[in-house]
Design a protein around this nucleic acid. Sequence first.
DNA 1: CACTTGACCTGTCCGC
DNA 2: TGCGGACAGGTCAAGT
Length: 295
Amino acid sequence: MPELPEVETVKRGLEKLIIGKKVTRVYFDWPKSFPNTSTDINSFLIGSGVTDVRRRAKVLIIDLDTSYSLVIHLKMTGQLVYVGRKELNISERFGAGHPSESLIGKLPDKSTHVIFTFKDDSNLYFNDQRKFGWIRLIPTIEIPNIDFFKKVGPEPLADNFTNKDFIGRFRRRNNTTIKAALLDQTVIAGVGNIYADESLWGAKIHPTTKVASLTDAKLNKLFIQLRNVLHLSIEKGGSTDRNYVNAEGKKGSYIQFAQVFRRENQPCYRCGLLIIKTRVAGRGTHLCPKCQIAA
DNA sequence: CACTTGACCTGTCCGC
DNA sequence: TGCGGACAGGTCAAGT
């Protein structure tokens, strides 16, 4: 579920909430959610302090003071929600579900598969309905050697990432469709289905267009639109279609600003024609059939 | 090789 | 209300 803006939002929340906390207990009930359990994870993690929270592509990294890091992928339905002791007291006094948009007071629930408890009795919950997500404990120095990190493309929002870099990376995928190339994490990092559709609408490019048939000027337009969409979504706290919540259990509001995503049968904001939903690169794909001309 | 499809899971929604 | 099937924001492995 979460793409770059959602993971970035979680990262920004967590760095305010858990840096400096010491782990006192670890719970997990689904080995695939916490796959490297051959060593005694519990005893190894107990006493570790959180020193930093980082993001690369759609992956979160929680650095510990033991030279190890927790590497976390939320995949489709993963959530990382922190509940402080004070908030827990509030929910105990006022009942579960307070405040109403928050998961505080409702956790753990049946989708909770890992819980980190800190010294102050606060908890970090890893919830994952579909169980595609995972957490791994690995030496911090080994992170760049993970296959995914060796292959993943550059961060599209990095200051030193230019339109020339962007165009050059897409030219390596000239034979495929622009939507498949956007979703390919080895081309650029962090783009998923929502922001692929949104940026293609912004650049007036049909998702099935072959990369080779796009001019540099058109790719440049896509570069600008993609960065705009990602920035706007981060500002709005990401997109909550169904599952996504931030580190405080709250939803993101980008979906209200979406131009095409989940807007099938509603009028295009540019031309008024109805947005349609099709299938491209194996994914549900939203587009305006008039603005986004097939090449 | 480059590219596409199925698998990993559970929950929800839609049609009968 | 029940049941089957399609589908859901990601990524790999396996297939063409």
